[in-house]
């Protein structure tokens, strides 16, 4: 009996392709505005500070700090049925952006922990030949 569906995967667009190309090579990249230097996330067609479309993709250090640690007990999508309760975190990157991600935790070590304030480091989890998802590991 295995009726657990696959997790949803994003469609790769012209806009997001560099992000996913980078994660496939084990790096976290974000857009940096060529006009004002603002690093934006989520991925967007123009700078959210100055509307400038020109940008470069910059490599992030991969470090971060946990701002919020949520533990999903409710299964909203059956693909998560086996791993619930699972941890979702909001991470503050030192470069400025914040992002949602998760913590791989097959042994449920963090189910009752509260990781707010903890330093974390990016890791990469292959989901399909095209999609490699960044996640974060608490620094011991």
């Amino acid at each position: 009996m295995n009726d657990i569906p696959a997790k949803p995967l994003p469609e790769i667009s012209n806009l997001t392709k560099p992000f996913w190309d980078a994660t496939r090579s084990g790096e976290l990249h974000m857009q940096k505005c060529s006009q004002c230097g603002h690093i934006r996330y989520p991925v967007g067609p123009v700078c959210t500070a100055c509307l400038e479309p020109e940008h470069t993709w910059e490599k992030m250090s991969g470090k971060g700090k946990v701002l919020a640690h949520l533990v999903f007990h409710q299964v909203y999508h059956k693909a998560w049925a086996k791993e619930a309760p699972y941890s979702v975190i909001m991470v503050q990157l030192p470069e400025g952006p914040r992002m949602f991600s998760d913590i791989e935790d097959p042994a449920h070590r963090y189910k009752d922990a509260d990781l707010v304030g903890r330093e974390v480091e990016v890791r990469f989890r292959p989901m399909s030949p095209d999609i490699v998802l960044p996640w974060f590991k608490p620094v011991e």
Binding site: P42, V43, A68, Q74, M90, F100, S101
Partner: peptide, 28 residues
């Protein structure tokens, strides 16, 4: 119970459902 977020959606990491954003507010 739909996934929230856009583009590189938060649902990729299981950040979904109506309670997620308010759980974030409560946590902070």
């Amino acid at each position: 119970a739909r996934a929230s977020g856009s583009d590189i959606g938060w649902g990729l990491w299981g950040m979904m459902g109506a309670a997620a954003n308010s759980a974030l507010a409560a946590e902070r």
